[in-house]
């Protein structure tokens, strides 16, 4: 479904991604793992078109998208929920959701999407008219995911969905992601907590210093000495 190869991405003179590659198949849940500054968000931002790679290519559902602007990529069926929710703070919850369905393909189905989304997130019904910045962190994360779904994506990418949330809320969001996945949406997410990430994901990629150094199924990665070295500070072998 998604194939990114040989991505080199830089901010000015500072190169962040070095030859990064990932592949995601239809129906998978894939996590991007790695320490702070490894380039996970940069990779995701490049996939969604916010950043342009110096070299390399991104193909999504058979179409090359790395030269398309971000607002065109959404219409291809890829939705990206940014790190730290990034709702429109001074718009209401409802307005945020409606804007999520901005591209013509999603706008046609806006009303049914809203019904579908309020079924997944029942609390949204009472919060329609509330300004987004007045919601709690967990609620904001749910609205951000809901807004991402309003675009009716085939692939939903979520950057750190569990950041700064209480354990109970983390479990709620895990359940929400599973439900969205069960509805047939492919998922990529970023998470620093290996246990949590691999419990949810089928497969993972490990990034370190801007390179995709490791790839494997969740059970494989959980056993991997390399993963232990990076995340637990232990020495391999």
């Amino acid at each position: 479904m998604l194939r990114a190869e040989g991505l080199n991405v830089a901010y000015g003179d500072f190169q962040v991604l070095w030859d990064a590659s990932i592949r995601v198949g239809e129906g998978e849940i894939v996590c991007l793992l790695g320490p702070n500054g490894a380039g996970k968000s940069t990779l995701m931002n490049t996939l969604s078109g916010l950043l342009k790679p110096r070299t390399g290519r991104v193909e999504f559902r058979g179409k090359r998208i790395d030269r398309l602007p971000a607002h065109r990529i959404v219409a291809e069926g890829m939705s990206h929920v940014l790190e730290r929710r990034r709702l429109f703070p001074y718009l209401t919850v409802r307005e945020n959701l409606v804007l999520g369905a901005h591209h013509p393909g999603a706008r046609r189905h806006r009303e049914e999407s809203l019904v579908h989304i309020e079924a997944i997130f029942p609390f949204l019904r009472e919060r329609r008219q509330q300004l987004a910045h007045t919601l709690s962190g967990g609620e904001q994360q749910m609205v951000a995911i809901a807004r991402g779904l309003m675009a009716r994506p085939r692939l939903l990418m979520i950057d750190e969905p569990f950041l700064g949330l209480a354990p109970r809320v983390v479990e709620e969001i895990v359940a929400v992601i599973r439900r969205i996945h069960a509805d047939g949406v492919t998922i990529i997410f970023i998470e620093q907590n290996v246990e949590l990430a691999l419990r949810l994901a089928d497969r993972g990629y490990v990034l370190e210093s801007g390179r995709t150094i490791l790839e494997g199924s969740s059970p494989e990665l959980l056993q991997s000495a390399e993963v232990k070295r990076i995340f637990l500070g232990g020495r391999a072998g």
Binding site: S48, G49, L50, P69, A70, H71, R72, V74, A75, S79, H80, L82, R86, L87, F88, P89, Y90, L91, E95, V98, L99, G100, H102, H103, A106, R147, A151
Partner: peptide
């Protein structure tokens, strides 16, 4: 208006707006 909301959204978060499919 819808367009007014699109404009305010763009002002509040340009990257998020373009990820909604808004041509900023």
């Amino acid at each position: 208006s819808y367009t007014g909301r699109v404009m305010r959204a763009t002002a509040q978060d340009r990257d998020a707006a373009s990820l909604m499919g808004i041509d900023t």
